[in-house]
Every structure is written in structure tokens, then in C-alpha cells.
């Protein structure tokens, strides 16, 4: 069993490996968490998620951009793959459930992928439908997974036209479900006009808006 000091040292090193997008080191440190008898749940929360929170700050301050974010996510996932099998069921109490996808007619999924990464890092259960997702599929999958929130992404002015129809269909099926929208052509004004519950200008903001929506 590692001492508290040693534990903190390892967790800090995991954070640094995520921030420094060092996949190999992150994987190795997460293996050492298990060897040293450190609680894997604590390593996820304070190490990996803590690292990704710092990444979010660097993104907000325009020190990190999409390339860095993607590599930080790879490092996080490398560590998570080591720790996940060792998490207890009671550790899996998640912040919320999110269904996410790029709307029909659109294959641009880098923004959606970043949003998914930030939600996963923040401890949400994420159901990712991919890109070019038909309206009916959003409705079916929301019912199946009973998610708190549905996040819709579009990069094209053509494909964003599917959003009000998806929102209408989701609300008709489940008036309680909250819908978050984002993507380059979207704005707060358009989100409101489309009947969305919230608009997020980027991946970091999306997590905050979602947390606000479910209180």
C-alpha cells in the first residue's frame, strides 16, 4: 500500500502525463497505481479527470487547440483502459447519461468527438451514435438508454436544419429530456429558435451547460 505522499505523487504524475499527452507514461503510471494498491477510482478522478480538467483550462486560455486535445484524450484513454477493469460497481456512480451524435447529412465529427471526450473525462456515461445520424435513431436510442441529455452537433448550415425536427421528436417522446446543441453555424439565438435547452460554443462549455441542465 502506497503512502499518501507517494499516492499524491503518482496521481500528479498521471495528471502531467495527460496534460503532456504522453500515452505510454500514462499507461505505465496507471499500472503502477494497481501495483501500489492505490484506489483505482481515486486515480481516475484525481489523476485522469484532474488532468483533463487542466487540459480544458489550457484550451480555454488558447494554449491548447484541437491537436493537443485529441492527444490528451488518447493519453487519458490509455490510462482508463488499465484502470477500468478494476473499478468497483459502486465507483461507477456517474454524473449523468448523455446521448451524442452528428445530425443527418453531416460527416464532420471532430467537434462531436471532442465533446464526447470531455464528457467521458468528467464522469458521464456517453452513448455515441457517430455521424450522419437519422432523426429516428436519436429518438430510438434516447428511449433505449434513457439518457438525461441528448447532444446534437452540426457543422453545415444544411444539416443544422435537421435539429429542430430532432428536438421536436425527442420532446414528443420524452418531454423531460434535455437537448444541448453545438457546432460552427449554431448560436444561442438559433438554439432557442430550434427549441434546444442549451447551446455550447465548445467542448469545455458543453460539460458545464449539461451539468447546469440536470442540476
Amino acid at each position: 500500500m502506497a503512502s499518501e505522499e507517494k499516492t499524491r505523487e503518482i496521481l500528479k504524475a498521471i495528471q502531467d502525463a495527460v496534460v503532456g499527452y504522453d500515452e505510454e507514461t500514462c499507461e505505465r503510471l496507471c499500472s503502477s497505481v494497481l501495483e501500489e494498491g492505490i484506489d483505482p477510482h481515486r486515480a481516475v478522478v484525481e489523476g485522469l479527470t484532474g488532468g483533463m480538467e487542466r487540459v480544458g483550462e489550457l484550451y480555454n486560455s488558447q494554449e491548447y487547440f484541437v491537436p493537443e486535445l485529441l492527444l490528451c484524450a488518447d493519453a487519458l484513454n490509455a490510462g482508463l483502459n488499465v484502470l477500468k477493469p478494476h473499478l468497483k460497481i459502486e465507483d461507477a456512480a456517474r454524473k449523468g447519461k448523455l446521448l451524442i451524435g452528428v445530425v443527418e447529412g453531416d460527416i464532420h465529427d471532430i467537434g462531436k468527438n471532442l465533446v464526447r471526450i470531455m464528457f467521458e473525462a468528467a464522469g458521464w456515461d456517453v452513448y455515441d451514435l457517430g455521424n450522419n445520424v437519422k432523426i429516428e435513431r436519436f429518438v430510438e436510442e434516447q428511449k433505449k438508454a434513457n439518457t438525461d441529455i441528448v447532444a446534437l452537433s452540426a457543422l453545415m448550415t444544411t444539416s443544422m436544419l435537421a435539429m429542430p425536427k430532432i428536438i421536436g421528436a425527442l420532446k414528443a417522446q420524452n418531454p423531460g429530456v434535455k437537448v444541448l446543441v453545438g457546432g460552427a453555424p449554431l448560436s444561442q439565438e438559433i438554439a432557442q429558435r430550434y427549441g434546444a435547452d442549451a447551446y455550447a460554443p465548445d467542448a469545455v462549455a458543453a460539460v458545464k451547460r449539461a451539468a447546469d441542465l440536470i442540476g
Binding site: 445530425v103 443527418e104 447529412g105 453531416d106 460527416i107 448550415t157 444544411t158 436544419l161 435537421a162
Partner: peptide, 12 residues
């Protein structure tokens, strides 16, 4: 080529 109501560009 783009098809349907919501596609406005080539689809890779």
C-alpha cells in the same frame, strides 16, 4: 454526391 434533405456537400 449529396442526397436527401440535409446534405449540401460531397460525402466522404
Amino acid at each position: 454526391l449529396p442526397e436527401g434533405e440535409y446534405e449540401g456537400a460531397l460525402m466522404v
